[in-house]
Design a protein around this nucleic acid. Structure first.
Ligand SMILES: [Mn+2]
Ligand SMILES: [Mn+2]
Ligand SMILES: [Mn+2]
Ligand SMILES: [Mn+2]
Lengths: 218, 218
DNA sequence: ATAAATTTTTAGGCAAGACTAAAAATTTAT
DNA sequence: ATAAATTTTTAGTCTTGCCTAAAAATTTAT
């Protein structure tokens, strides 16, 4: 069994390691967990002894298969709880993260499977992120950033990159959410902003925003 | 905010303090939490500084009003989660304790109120114990031990004293549960056992068992 | 009332997980 | 290629929460 702290490190390493072949740097982990590099080195050594990561001094870390599976399980719990909070307890998608961050550490073999069944085996969390299955398999869907769409292309919103409350509330205000159809009417070369049609309305979206919305082209 | 450990101490002191006017002894707390007396003394000092308990050396501790309210809130969370596990996630009443012991420490103002509403504001947990309201008020019901019933008296099962898995599974086997009608047909002076009628069946119940079942006379 | 037994506290330590400051290694710039 | 900058590790410390062993206080027995 892993401590809460160990689990947070494992999850951080997993997330930092998506689409990266090299070892994850000490500093990157420290930054993500808002801690100091020296603390990370300490923890890395422990995780290395527990065979969760492979670690060579100054080379960064990589998750072992065991580590990846462990990470997937924590993420599975995190995302299932997020679904529960939004679907059953009236949380909005910008309120769930902090609580799920705690709930993901609850240890109970039965709890998470029953929760999964109770929720109807959801495939994605409230932010559009896929929920790993019991064996840690994570279904990848094909998605692209709204920013990559060309003029007159259409897509449907399937996720967000930035999951901060600020951004999510901004999207709420603009009436942008998962499943929403989005059409690029025009691109402004001056500031790379987008004129899009959402919900029948035409609105302007900054490049930064367009780079934080995932869509599926259609 | 209190740490998980602090919360467990507060809860233990609360439970030990029910119907006791004197201070709760260090040893009693140690026994309940399966820890050492010296550890208890350490923690007691900390809780005393935080004004959760009143403590005089060698005199045991008493919860302050603030401490009582804090305890009630933890117990509220524990019991609401137990209801959730049994009512929604197919846990049986002997499986919930360990998980609720973890869930009770989740910090979220919104979570527990929404859970309460989601569950339909339950008044009692799966073991018949009352659920404190938001302000820490705990409705006391009138209940007595089955062992206090006289021959030919009847009652309905409203709770259990021992909440161990062993005892609860034993009750399941005997088909004894909350809401069950129980009639004392006879008392055996030799071993103080009881002949009772439950579910139309006549069964013999040891004195020990009779001292762990709460009933409401009728 | 004194002695014995029990309870409680103190003293000293340990492990986890964090931190600061300094040393060592690596990477980047010139 | 060397120097400068950056990253990473080490060394030493701190807090929390636990432990054992011993001392002190209280309670119980004679
Ligand atoms: Mn977490
Ligand atoms: Mn999410
Ligand atoms: Mn607990
Ligand atoms: Mn209960």
């Amino acid at each position: 069994m892993f401590s809460q702290s160990e689990e947070n490190y494992i999850k951080a390493i997993y997330h930092l390691g998506v689409e990266v072949t090299k070892g994850i740097s000490t500093n990157a982990i420290a930054k993500r967990l808002e801690t100091k590099a020296s603390s990370v080195t300490d923890m890395i050594k422990k995780l290395s002894e527990k065979e969760v990561v492979v670690y060579k001094k100054y080379q960064g870390v990589t998750l072992t298969d065991f580590g990846k599976k462990t990470a997937a399980n924590i993420i599975r719990k995190h995302r299932l709880w997020e679904v529960f909070l939004v679907e059953e307890l009236n949380f909005s998608w910008d309120e769930v993260h902090e609580v799920a961050e705690q709930l993901e550490h609850i240890k109970s073999p039965k709890l998470i499977d029953e929760l999964d069944a109770f929720l109807g085996y959801p495939k994605r969390d409230p932010h559009g992120d896929p929920i790993p299955d019991k064996d840690g398999n994570l279904p990848q869907i094909q998605k692209s950033l709204l920013a990559t769409l060309q003029k007159n292309e259409k897509g449907v919103c399937v996720g967000v990159n930035d999951t901060s409350s600020e951004f999510l509330r901004f999207l709420d205000k603009q009436e942008i959410g998962l499943g929403q159809d989005i059409e690029v009417l025009d691109k402004e070369p001056f500031d790379d902003s987008f004129l899009v049609k959402i919900n029948g309305k035409e609105i302007t979206i900054s490049n930064k925003v367009a780079n934080n919305i995932y869509i599926q082209k259609k």
